[in-house]
Simulated scan of single mutants.
Amino acid sequence: MGNTCCGVCGCIDQASIGVIERWGRFERLAEPGLHFFNPFAGEFLTGVLSTRINSLDVRIETKTKDNVFVQLLCSIQYRIIKQNADDAFYELQNPKEQIQAYVFDVVRAHVPRMTLDGLFEQKSDVAQAVLEELEKVMGAYGYNIEHILVVDIIPDPSVRKAMNEINAAQRLQLANVYKGEAEKILQIKKAEGEAESKYLGGVGVARQRQAITDGMRENILNFSHKVEGTSAKEVMDLIMITQYFDTIKDLGNSSKNTTVFIPHGPGHVRDIGDQIRNGMMEASSAQLSSTDQGDLLDMI
């Protein structure tokens, strides 16, 4: 329901306030409801003001301390003070333009002191500065500033693109760091696995050779005791030749082998047997020598 008025009476809507004049001079304020006027005494309802909260959007272009041009979108929420509605009615011809001018002045005085990153972080400080200035100025004209919001900060498109590229590069760098750390851990674990595998393989080979040595020793002893007139050297040669032919047989049975043959013959087998036997004898001699030295040290 809107405000209605005739020459004798007037109805003022809720959330509104009327301005009554007598012979062109301000007489009083009219609260919401029905009011009667005396036109013969010069009383008239001159105007009606809304006491609702109004919103004014202001777009300001300025630059920051680091010379970046930005646009700030501010939303100013204000309302008329009922007790001072006559000042709001008579003092300002266009209150929106007045508010906008003060917002421009305050924002362009504060933003050039901040960097672009600081502006994003401290936009509430800019809003507070605008609020304090407007309350001080507009309060004298019958307006109360309810809230001021810095709705958006819009840098130049090229600056926004550069900021996005910087952020993307930082995130890519961080991702590469994490990827490098993961690869490092993988390589370390792989190296530890290979080291453990080689260690266990060496232990297995050592045990295998020890078992072969023990078996050969046992075979030599058994053969020497059962067959009279045979020496350990002859038994060793027989075992080596047997193993040689077993190896040739295994290679012949395998269809997928990459074995490289070298010149060989029975004489070569005998040479190999001599080398193995000499190695075993040298090892035994070294072991006996170390034992003798230990006994000598104990005696001292």
Rank of each mutant, 00 (worst) to 15 (best):
G7A: 13
R52L: 10
N54Q: 15
R52S: 11
D57A: 10
V68Q: 05
V70Q: 02
F36E: 11
S75T: 13
C11E: 12
R79N: 06
T46E: 11
R59L: 11
N67K: 08
N38T: 08
L45D: 05
A30E: 09
S50R: 11
E21G: 00
R79Y: 04
D87K: 06
F26K: 13
F40N: 15
L72H: 02
Q83F: 03
G24Y: 08
A88I: 01
N38A: 11
T64P: 02
L34C: 14
N67Q: 08
L73C: 07
I60C: 00
I20W: 03
E27C: 11
F37Q: 07
V19D: 00
L49D: 05
C9N: 13
A30K: 05
S55Y: 03
L45G: 07
G10E: 06
L73V: 09
F89V: 02
T64K: 01
L72K: 02
L45H: 07
V48D: 04
N54V: 06
K65Q: 13
T64M: 05
I20D: 03
P32K: 03
V68W: 02
I53V: 13
F69S: 07
I80Y: 00
S16C: 15
I53F: 05
G10F: 05
D13S: 12
S55E: 07
K82S: 06
Q77L: 07
N54H: 15
C11K: 13
G33V: 09
D86Y: 01
L34R: 15
G10N: 07
P32F: 04
G47Q: 10
A41C: 10
L56P: 06
S75Q: 13
F36Y: 10
V19E: 00
L72R: 01
L73F: 06
D86Q: 04
G42H: 09
S55F: 02
V58Q: 04
D66F: 02
I80A: 00
F44A: 12
F40H: 15
N67T: 05
E27M: 14
